[in-house]
């Protein structure tokens, strides 16, 4: 077990009269894959949106402590959550820059590294500010991740023209290019065929082993049970179970509420 990386305490998110997430608390450890599962509408994506700053939580705290420091994510500006606290994410419905090439997508992700501030951005017009060497580093990093997700040969193709599975992997590579300490993936296996799912599992394990913790929303139980170190189960915005995959599999509350009567599905 690693040290706690992300601590969510009493998180509540209300939309008008609807409570999407209700005083949720859990911990995600460094160097682990934490899966968040639950039926549709359980509030999983809302939790992600709160962590990554797209929603302002109605109450509760989200704190992250990594090598980069301690951060209170719930009060930070959206882009600073990625930039300073090093939390990266992907989206349920893929959000690539579809008119830009695969390589450009990965370079945009390193924007803050190649252009620390506007002054550097303007100086770069005149070739000043050490831009060239930064750009070279960015290209190397992009190539590294393209290689990792097996898209090196497609580098100059517009991202929008890639097949679905490639787009999913590209989005993960793009998130990794921001150099995160926590990677939040919203249904990365959705729409993938079994072979692609297996490859995804290998990729995610290697990302975890390289030191980046992962949080994962996923419906594909095969992937979840195989790679997760820790599973949080939500139902109607509340946590109903929390523990190792083995623990979850055996938890009668989970079986009753989420997986229904059909226990075979859990084993699968």
């Amino acid at each position: 077990m690693g040290a706690p990386l992300l601590t969510v305490a009493d998180l509540t998110m209300k939309f008008g009269g609807l409570t999407a997430v209700d005083s949720l608390s859990f911990v995600a450890n460094a160097g682990e894959i934490t899966a968040v599962i639950g039926p549709n509408g359980a509030g999983k994506t809302t939790v992600f949106n709160c962590i990554t700053g797209f929603y302002k939580a109605s109450s509760g705290t989200i704190s992250l402590s990594s090598a980069a420091g301690d951060f209170a994510l719930a009060t930070m500006q959206g882009h600073n959550i990625t930039r300073q606290a090093k939390v990266a994410r992907t989206f349920q419905n893929i959000r690539l820059f579809s008119g830009m090439t695969v390589l450009e997508n990965l370079l945009v992700a390193q924007h803050n590294m190649v252009m620390p501030d506007v002054v550097h951005g303007v100086l770069a017009v005149f070739g000043l500010g050490g831009y060239r060497s930064l750009e070279r580093q960015a290209l190397d990093k992009a190539k590294y991740w393209l290689d990792q997700v097996k898209l090196l040969s497609r580098a100059d193709v517009p991202a929008g023209s890639l097949p679905y599975g490639d787009q999913r992997r590209l989005e993960i590579a793009r998130a990794m290019c921001t150099g995160p300490s926590l990677l939040c993936l919203d249904e990365p296996a959705a729409g993938l065929n079994p072979r692609e799912s297996d490859e995804l599992a290998v990729l995610l394990t290697s990302i975890r082993d390289s030191g980046c913790a992962i949080m994962l929303i996923e419906h594909d139980m095969g992937v979840v049970m195989k790679i997760s170190d820790h599973v949080v189960v939500l139902e109607y915005g509340r946590k109903i179970s929390d523990g190792t995959p083995e623990h979850i599999r055996a938890d009668p509350k989970v079986i009753a509420a989420y997986l229904g009567e059909d226990e075979d599905e859990v084993a699968a």
């Binding site: 882009h79 690539l96 450009e104 190649v114």
Partner: peptide, 27 residues
């Protein structure tokens, strides 16, 4: 020239998808 630099690239990314830009830490 700007189009080939980080700033211009960020502009084009912004045109493509603002939410994704924010998720990549771009102000």
């Amino acid at each position: 020239r700007l189009r080939r630099l980080p700033l211009g690239r960020a502009w084009e990314a912004l045109r493509e998808d603002e939410i994704a830009c924010r998720a990549l830490g771009i102000n």
